[in-house]
Amino acid sequence: MMNLFLLINREFKLSIKNFKSALFNIFFFVISSFIFFLSFGSEFEAIIEFSHGIIWSVLLFSLIFSVDQFYDSDFKDGSLKELKILGYSSVEIIISKLFTMWFFIALPIIIIAPLILYSFFGVYPYNKTLIISLFLASPSLILLASLGEILLIRARKNKIMLMLIIIPFYIPILIFGVSAVDVAKLGFIPDKNFIILVGFFMITLPLTLVFGKLCIDQICE
C-alpha cells in the first residue's frame, strides 16, 4: 500500500511536470468537438439530437491519442525496468499509472464537456445523465487503452495501430454509454445502462491487471 502511494506520488509529479501534454489533450478535445458542432451549421435541433454522441466519440479519440505518453517515456528511459528492480510489482505500477491517467486525461474532459455544450445552447437538459455515463465508462476506457499501449510498447508502432486494436473493444462501451442519454430522452431513468457500464469496469479491471502484468514482466526480463 505504501509502495502504491509512493508510485502515485511519482506519477503525479511527472504529470505535473509534463502538464503541457495534458493541456494539449484538453485542447484537442475542445477543438475537435467544436469542429464537429460547426459542421452541423445552424441546425440547433440536430445538434441537440446528436451532441452526446459527438462528445462520446471525441472523448474516445482523445483518450487513445494521449495514453502513450505514460508508458512510452518510462520504457524508453529505462525507468520501467528500474522500478521493477527496486521491488515495485507490475500490478502496482499499472494501478498507479491508471489512476494518474484517469485524473489527468479523463477527469478534465468530463468537467469540460458540459461547458462546451453550454457554449452552444445554454444548459443542456441531459447534463446529469451524460456526466454520470462518462464518469462510469471512462475508467474502463482508460483500462483498455492502457492494455493496448502495453501490448504495443515494443512494436514499430504508430497511433493508428493502437486505434485499430482498441476500437473494437470500445464499441460495446460506446453503445451502452450513448444509449443512456437516449433512454433519458425518452423520460426513463437509465439505471440499467449505468449498471452495465460498471459491469464493463468489473470485466476490464482484472483483464488489464492480469495481462498487463504478464507483458510488463516479459518486458523487464
Binding site: 495481462f211 507483458c215 516479459q218
Partner: peptide
Amino acid sequence: ILSNAFDDFRKGDKNAAI
C-alpha cells in the same frame, strides 16, 4: 496487425495471443 507489428516474431505471437 498486432502479430506483424514486431521485429521479433516471438513477441508478436505472445501479444497477439493476449
